[in-house]
Each structure stands twice: as C-alpha cells, then as structure tokens.
Simulated assay, not measured.
Amino acid sequence: MRFTLGDQPRVVPGFTAALAEQEERHPGPPSAWQPVHTVYVPADRFGRGTVRAWGETALELLEAHLPGDAALTDVFGVPPGDLAADVRRRVARKLAAEPVEDLRVDFEDGYGVRPGEEDAHADAAAEAVAAMSAEGTLPRRWGLRIKSFADGDPARAVRTLDGFLTGVTDRAGHLPPGFTVTFPKVLMEAYLGQFVAVLAVLEGGLGLAAGTLRFEMQVEAPQTVQFLARSPGLVPALGGRLAAAHFGVFDYTAACGLPPGEQRLDHPVCDHAREVMRVALAGTGVELSDGSLAASPASGDTRDVHALWRAHAAMVRHSLRHGFYQGWDMHPSHLVSRYATVYAFHLAHRDAYAGRVRAWEARRDADGGVMDEPATIKTLAAALRRARLALGDD
C-alpha cells in the first residue's frame, strides 16, 4: 500500500495538548451512585430523629391514602397488576429502611436570618449528625446549605460551615462519608473560586485529606446560566471540588420576572436553564439535580393528599423524561410520590431495554425490528445501570 504522507504515523501538531485539555475538561459522566432526591430541613427543625420521623410520616400517609395496589393506578398512573404491586411494595420497603437518601440541613432560605441563633443551631445540628453517624442512621449523602455570598456577608456563611464541620469531626472523631455543602445563589463566577479557597483552608485546619470537601452550586439566576455557558474551563479550574449543580426553580423564575402562578418546574424558562446546565457541564463528571415543588397537602383528607401527590409526580416525571434523575423534596409526603414515580419510571422499561441490549450483543434486531445504534446501546446500558442503583437491586 502506498501512502502520500509516508508509511509512519505522524503526530498531528497540537494534538497532544488538545487531548490533555479534553481529558481534563471532560473526564466523562458521573460514575458513582446518585441519590434520587435531596431533602432540605431548616436547621431550627432538624434533630437526630428527623430522618426517622420523615420516614414514619410518609409510611403512615402511604398506608392511609394508598391502601392497595389499585390506588397507584388512579393517583400515579401506574398500570394495574404486577407493576403496581411491585412499585407499592418497593415504596413501603424504602420508607421503612431508607426514607432519605440525601440530607441537607438548611441555613439559607428555609432558615432565614437569625444572627443571634445560627451558631447554636449549627452546633446542635453537628451534634445530631454525629449521633446519627454513631447510630448508623445518617443518610448516604448529607451536608448543609450555607447562606449565599451574594447576600453580602460571606463571613456568616463561612462561620456556620466552620462551626458545623468542626462540631461534627470533634464529636465523631472523623468526617463521616458522604458529606457535601450546598453553595446557593452563585451570582458571580468569582464566588466559586473564593469558596474553593475557603474549603482548602478549612480542610487543612481539620486535618482532612486534600480534596475531601466538595460542594454543589445552585443555579438560581440568569447570571449563573450566562457564566456557565461562557466558561468551558470552569470545572477543572475548581480543582475537582464541584460535585453537582442543582437548579433552583423559585429563585430562577422570580429572577426572570414570571408571575407567581408560573413559578413551576416545568415552565419553558426552566427547561431552557436546565438545558444550558446540561450542555455546559456535559462530560465533566458533575451531577445534575432538578428543583422542588413548594407545596404540601392542603389537609389530611385523602382528596387533598392525592392532589398533592399527582402534582408532585407530574413534576418528577417531567424531570425524569428530561434526563434529570434527582430533585428536591421539602415535605414527608413528597417521599411517597418521589419513590413511586421514580420506581415506576425505571421498572416500566427495564425489561425491554435489557432485551434490546441482549439483541445487540447477539448481533440481531430487537423485538419489533428495532436496529439500535452503538450510541443508543450505550444509553440503554446507562439507563439499566441507573435503574439498578435507583431501585436498590443487586
């Protein structure tokens, strides 16, 4: 064979540097387990029994208002029969064993401004977390949400984080695994670098290994969406400390000037913001999370509980269909609709997806004559892995 450029492979000028930059900026999608939700509890209402109480309340709601499998069809649209029975059984088991997968003790919007109380609440929260760790009741992910630097008082945010972490490590003798801190209302890109510097200093003071303290940023304003879109090197610049980006529905829609009745997760302006988040953070290893529904049942009447569950389930399904597999839960009732919707979503297509992967591996068309492309097979395999982790199946 004759070659115009010669028979020896040549290095394309600049390729090595470009490849190194690609690998630094885009190491790949998140590979670890990701919780299906984050539960926010105001710091003044948090204690060592909070998670257990949420689970008990949610289980009571399930038993009182979804007494049988058939009710899942009416409320959540789960097809009757084996699937509805499987979903309900899984939800009841989850609420009894692990009602909360990811917990945040909230010192921001859910807590308010309490200059004379915040130190005491941070210390009490640290004591509760250490006790939960010793008891084995601390969720797999946990942490706190501090106040925003955009509020003009970063010292208050740092003081709470310092006191909380110092209190936990002093009492527990170590930092329990699964910790993250939520950094809200990031209106300036510079705040991220400043916060990373704080985490590094705090890490050193606590005697933690470098890189232990990671954080998630909240995307709650158009300004944040703008700098995400224009800063392709943002994630590596933060030294691997950015673990996730969480969308804040209500601050974002308010900042966009939407009327109160349109402050909802499935509004088109929210869809746009999430798509920018997805594109800006694709392949960086940073997890994505959607926001919340700020509502609880209007009363204990079954009609009101079902109305809340339907509304919440619709929001959760919207997130799932758009590839956002995590969201916020703000009330014990949300646990029922969260798990029921997530489990139904994954179970509904699991067997069909597995069949298509097996068909591709056997070099044959799937049922219905489907001819899957390699990229689709990768997506199917990822969906099966996500389903296995979300469902807790081995």
Results as ranks from 00 to 15, higher is better:
residue 6 G to A: 13
residue 7 D to K: 10
residue 8 Q to V: 15
residue 13 P to D: 15
residue 15 F to P: 05
residue 16 T to G: 05
residue 21 E to G: 06
residue 30 P to H: 09
residue 34 Q to S: 11
residue 44 D to V: 03
residue 45 R to H: 07
residue 48 R to G: 04
residue 50 T to K: 08
residue 50 T to S: 11
residue 56 E to I: 07
residue 74 D to S: 03
residue 75 V to M: 02
residue 78 V to D: 00
residue 78 V to R: 09
residue 82 D to H: 05
residue 84 A to D: 06
residue 84 A to V: 11
residue 86 D to I: 04
residue 87 V to N: 00
residue 98 E to P: 03
residue 101 E to H: 08
residue 113 V to I: 13
residue 120 A to I: 05
residue 121 H to D: 14
residue 122 A to V: 01
residue 125 A to F: 05
residue 127 E to N: 05
residue 135 E to A: 15
residue 147 K to P: 03
residue 151 D to Q: 05
residue 161 L to I: 01
residue 165 L to E: 01
residue 167 G to V: 07
residue 169 T to I: 12
residue 170 D to V: 04
residue 171 R to E: 00
residue 179 F to M: 11
residue 189 E to A: 14
residue 189 E to M: 06
residue 194 Q to K: 11
residue 205 G to R: 13
residue 206 L to A: 05
residue 208 L to H: 09
residue 227 F to T: 03
residue 235 V to G: 04
residue 235 V to S: 06
residue 240 G to K: 03
residue 263 Q to S: 13
residue 264 R to S: 01
residue 264 R to A: 08
residue 265 L to A: 13
residue 266 D to F: 09
residue 270 C to W: 09
residue 272 H to V: 14
residue 287 E to A: 14
residue 288 L to I: 06
residue 289 S to A: 15
residue 305 V to E: 11
residue 317 R to G: 05
residue 318 H to Y: 15
residue 334 H to V: 04
residue 336 V to R: 12
residue 336 V to M: 11
residue 343 Y to Q: 09
residue 344 A to T: 08
residue 345 F to H: 13
residue 348 A to G: 07
residue 349 H to W: 09
residue 352 A to M: 13
residue 355 G to T: 00
residue 364 R to G: 10
residue 368 G to P: 02
residue 380 L to M: 15
residue 383 A to S: 14
residue 386 R to E: 14
residue 392 G to I: 07
